[in-house]
Design a binder for these strands. Structure first.
Lengths: 247, 247
DNA sequence: CGGTTGATTGATACACATCAAACCCCGTGG
DNA sequence: CCACGGGGTTTGATGTGTATCAATCAACCG
């Protein structure tokens, strides 16, 4: 997993430091040094809400969460997805109020970490600060990659990128990546990717026809990805329709 | 400048804590506690580059900068704009390498802050950490707002939102907001907003026809905004074409 | 001056949204 | 057991917002 300094041949997403061990280590660290309050959640439960006073950061221990931003007109927009080891509520630090809703999409457990206590302990245990900074930094990077996808990629590539992101997230947590079930509806995926649910459906169908992915259940939420790098080449093929010399 | 807890009647962007005093105070703090290395730059100068080893964070003292992300195919994408008091290079903390190019768009001065030194001093002066965390948190919020604009707003609204963002940024730094000169070409704006330069031009022309803005020079880079809230209502008018009851 | 760079405006093309129909799965209750 | 209904998905037909292509113009500059 080499960082691309000269030739970015491998456009992989996650950093070497962010893997199973890193995640487990961070969770252990938190548990050990802080009064974490464990909270069980079920699909649809709201962990924290936009506008609410900021006190705690939330770290995912298990399950899977979405961040929802409310537009001015009241329509919601998914702006982030979070798995084990990810932090939520970070955007609330600046102005003392949360900036998004964090919503559980499955049963799971989040740890509420009082921000004050984290800062206190951070003075004695710098690794805690490192974990916080790493989380924010990764999040920043991720958001910018998202932004770029939205600006530059056609729908098919965005959907493929989404699957690759999901597979990478599973990989970083030591889970199998060749087969998993999407825990979001087409509408939610489309909302996250800035397109309609029909476009998501069509993109998935095209990938299935191209044998980049395969569906393994009748509800078409279980997805099989024989080779993750097939997704990458699919993305590139979609972006460069006509291979012609640089004139 | 009230934070919206119940009724978000005022969809303003920046937090109360982020204003002229906050910015000056932060800069003073840095200067006082850290070995900042001042660096003068001119338009086009690259402050830090993607892939380069991460050592320092950069804080803008004057001038104005863009963050450029390189896509897999090598095309650049503007993913952020930064003014006095803003931090750059934050995305490099996680994996030890910068994730974007930071490019000056005007003559100015950045302060290079060794990250290690910042952490050291942060242990003795928690206000330094607070500044860092605030910067990252704001940035996160901002990126997500961007993301949502890209997903949900038509081009006209995005361009209007861009002008409002710029005006807000100037306002937060105590500068006049009723008139300023855009220091970006239409192509750069379009790149940042995920549209073509022609679309930017057309959107600006429409706003000028609607007297939401006015051009004051022949090159059409100086823009006059009599009332910033006219931009807001313009955005809303573009988003809700047919005003009909909720059925 | 001619040459270059950026901005505007119009004509046309296309990717994606929208609208619409049908299907599948699954739970509920007669 | 089957009938029914509703939420999610797929697929097709049509519409439209924006990209693309192209021409013109203004400002600047060596």
């Amino acid at each position: 997993m080499q960082v691309h300094s000269d030739a970015p041949a491998n456009p992989s997403q996650h950093s070497a430091a962010f893997d199973v061990r890193g995640i487990t280590e961070t969770l252990r660290l938190l548990q050990q040094h802080l009064p974490v309050q464990r909270r069980l959640v079920h699909a649809g439960d709201v962990v924290c809400q936009v506008g609410q006073k900021f006190n705690c950061l939330y770290v995912v221990n298990s399950g899977f969460f979405k961040l929802v931003n409310l537009s001015a007109e009241g329509r919601g927009q998914v702006v982030g997805l979070h798995f084990r080891g990810d932090w939520m509520g970070l955007e609330g630090i600046a102005d003392g109020h949360y900036g998004c809703d964090a919503v559980a999409m499955d049963t799971g457990e989040v740890w509420a970490i009082p921000y004050d206590a984290l800062l206190q302990s951070g003075l004695r245990t710098p690794a805690l600060l490192a974990a916080l900074h790493g989380a924010m930094s990764r999040e920043l990077k991720r958001d910018r990659d998202c932004l770029m996808s939205l600006c530059t990629l056609p729908v098919d590539a965005r959907v493929a990128g989404f699957l690759r992101y999901w597979a990478d997230a599973l990989d970083a947590r030591g889970l199998r990546t060749d087969q998993f079930t999407l825990r979001m509806t087409r509408a939610e995926i489309g909302n996250y990717l800035g397109m309609t649910l029909e476009s998501v459906s069509r993109a998935l169908s095209r990938m299935a026809r191209g044998e980049v992915i395969a569906f393994t259940d009748k509800a078409r939420r279980d997805i099989q990805i024989p080779r993750v790098d097939a997704l990458t080449s699919f993305i590139q093929s979609v972006c460069a329709p006509e291979p012609q010399a640089t004139h």
